[in-house]
């Protein structure tokens, strides 16, 4: 029950931040825009898809082609959402742990009958829950928009929502660790973005075409490989989520398992740091 109280307090904290409303606002605008832009009308020969009132194809398309088209649209929107979540979500939640650890605030929390790891877990769950609500809002909204405007009610979008929450959860384990370590929101944001947009994606995930070109040294390459497996494989999961949304069945789930283990390890690392620290 105490854990729930921490989660509730964290949700209140996030609800007071403009970033969360900006994210929800952008989602709303995109959903309304999509609802106005896309529609499909049924004819005897198939479905006629229109974009902004103009027919997209000259002839009606069969149902499976319509489903494929809708999935491509959904994948595009989910990709945009993913980027938005990575930018705004990290921006909104990166301060959760550093704010808690500020002088004058941390005393209030730690003097309560709560274990330090429990406090961190409550903050973690609160952060993931807040972003999860945003993801669900957008993807359930997209599911309703596409369902009502095209007649395609694609349940894979619901699974995508769960996958994206899971992905954010893995990343947030790392954010929690950095926040506990640095106790500074700005540094947490910078280091997380550095990891997301420079280290993980372009360098580690594509190490054969980037970092490995610098040297053939075995030790160097082993270290690079080690780093690749140490950090959550966000790019790998992103590719898996896109494949799942496109209806592919041969999805590589290994990055998901690796990211889960990595996110858990980073969270536990943060808990150990917090346990040892004097305030």
């Amino acid at each position: 029950m105490t854990l729930l109280a921490i989660v509730r307090l964290t949700l209140r904290e996030l609800a007071s931040k403009a970033t969360m409303y900006i994210l929800a606002g952008i989602s709303t605008v995109v959903l309304i825009g999509t609802a106005f832009a896309v529609s499909a009308s049924q004819t005897d020969a198939g479905s006629l898809v229109t974009m902004f009132g103009q027919p997209l194809m000259e002839v009606p398309i069969p149902q499976d082609a319509l489903v494929h088209f809708v999935r491509q649209m959904q994948a595009g929107l989910a990709g945009g959402l993913f980027t938005g979540i990575m930018l705004f979500g990290v921006f909104a939640t990166a301060g959760i742990v550093p704010d808690m650890l500020e002088r004058g605030t941390v005393d209030l929390y730690l003097s309560k009958p709560i274990a330090r790891w429990e406090l961190l877990l409550g903050k973690y769950l609160g952060g993931v829950a807040a972003i999860g609500v945003n993801i669900l809002y957008f993807l359930v909204g997209a599911w309703l928009v596409f369902g009502m405007r095209t007649g395609v009610w694609d349940p894979t979008l619901m699974l995508t929502a769960l996958i994206m929450i899971f992905m954010f959860g893995c990343l947030f384990g790392l954010v929690t660790f950095i926040g506990t370590w640095t106790r500074n929101t700005a540094t947490t944001i910078v280091l997380t973005f550095l990891f997301l947009f420079i280290i993980e994606g372009p360098l580690l995930a594509h190490r054969e075409s980037t970092l490995f070109r610098l040297s053939e040294n075995t030790i160097y390459r082993t270290v690079i490989d080690g780093l690749f497996y140490l950090f959550p494989q966000i790019s790998g999961m992103q590719a898996g989520a896109a494949a799942q949304l496109s209806g592919q069945t041969d999805i590589d789930w290994k990055p998901f398992l690796q990211a889960f283990l990595s996110g858990t390890a980073f969270f536990l690392g943060g808990a150990v740091l917090l346990k040892k620290r004097d305030f």
Binding site: L9, R12, A15, E102, G104, T105, P113
Partner: peptide, 16 residues
């Protein structure tokens, strides 16, 4: 700490 209360110096309650 279940049966203790604490008023820290320069405490900061969340402003929201």
């Amino acid at each position: 700490r279940r049966r203790i209360g604490y008023l820290p110096e320069n405490h900061r309650f969340p402003g929201y």
